[in-house]
């Protein structure tokens, strides 16, 4: 049993890794179409990506839309999460469920809805329209991350701050917010990624004007399978790896910085 499971496990690792591994060499390929292993290597498709407004514009659109979605999502979700985690009130379970609904509805259904709804508002094919839609879709994920953080927050710390003379507002600013900051940042990151990756709704409502990167990639794969996709994939990979590795790196850098700071510098005046 054990042995069989182990062999299967190793095969699965290969299955999961293979598609991730194959994209990187493809991006350096000099073949005109999909071919693996590549006949030769060059940086042509990187050059192509960084010189083609057909690719750069959707990339920029996606960044703008994801950033705006992130901000709007956090403005809405942070207070709501405090309400739902810290208070018990009539109708709370309904509100909890409502928060999760955008995650339960298939995106294709929302795409149809937004196509018509934003069309009526003349917001279809605009950045603003996509941002409005993406914010709805990002709410549950941001909420899940943040509420997990908030539930783990030790409220004795707030009592301690108050006993030490901090008013509720100052308690929030000096204690609650700084301690929750990492959680809020991760929550915001999730909202950003949710928007940046979102494909289906963007395909239907972003149009030419607000075309997002996933939409452009979808169209490109559907029509001609432009090898530039491999370049974008590799770049996105690099970002993901950076995001996964960066926290550990940052920690060690900070530790080193701190250990070099003599105690006197902290205790001394100003």
């Amino acid at each position: 049993m054990n042995r069989l499971m182990r062999i299967l496990g190793v095969l699965v690792v290969i299955f999961i890794a293979a598609p991730l591994v194959i994209v990187v060499p493809m991006s350096f390929s000099d073949a005109r179409s999909l071919q693996f292993p590549p006949p030769g290597y060059w940086l042509g498709y990187y050059y192509a990506f960084f010189n083609d407004w057909g690719w750069l514009r959707p990339t920029w659109n996606s960044i703008i839309i994801a950033a705006a979605t992130m901000v709007l999502t956090m403005i809405l979700v942070v207070p709501a999460t405090f309400a739902l985690v810290r208070y018990r009130f009539y109708g709370k379970s309904v509100a909890d469920l409502m928060m999760m609904m955008p995650l339960a509805v298939p995106h294709i259904v929302m795409a149809v809805g937004y196509y018509s709804f934003l069309g009526d508002l003349r917001l279809v094919h605009t950045h603003f329209g996509v941002i409005l839609a993406h914010t709805c879709l990002a709410v549950p994920i941001a909420f899940l991350v943040l509420s997990a953080n908030l539930k783990g927050f030790d409220r004795t710390l707030e009592r301690a701050a108050q006993s030490l003379g901090a008013s509720p507002v100052r308690t929030f600013m000096h204690v609650t917010l700084p301690i929750l900051r990492p959680g809020i940042m991760i929550s915001a990151l999730f909202a950003f990624i949710q928007s940046f990756d979102e494909t289906v709704v963007a395909i239907f409502i972003s149009g030419r004007n607000a075309e997002t990167l996933p939409r452009k990639m979808f169209d490109s794969i559907r029509q001609e399978a432009d090898p530039v996709i491999a370049v974008i994939s590799t770049l996105l990979f690099a970002v993901v790896i950076l995001a996964l590795v960066a926290p550990a790196g940052w920690k060690s850098i900070r530790k080193r910085l701190r250990s070099k700071t003599p105690p006197a510098a902290i205790l001394g005046s100003q």
């Binding site: 073949a31 990639m217 491999a230 996105l236």
Partner: peptide
């Protein structure tokens, strides 16, 4: 964390006629 478009594309390469 990898966009499923990227993963879909990777499978096109893997399973393609020149793959």
């Amino acid at each position: 964390w990898t966009s499923f478009l990227v993963r879909t594309y990777a499978w096109m390469v893997l399973l393609g006629n020149n793959g």
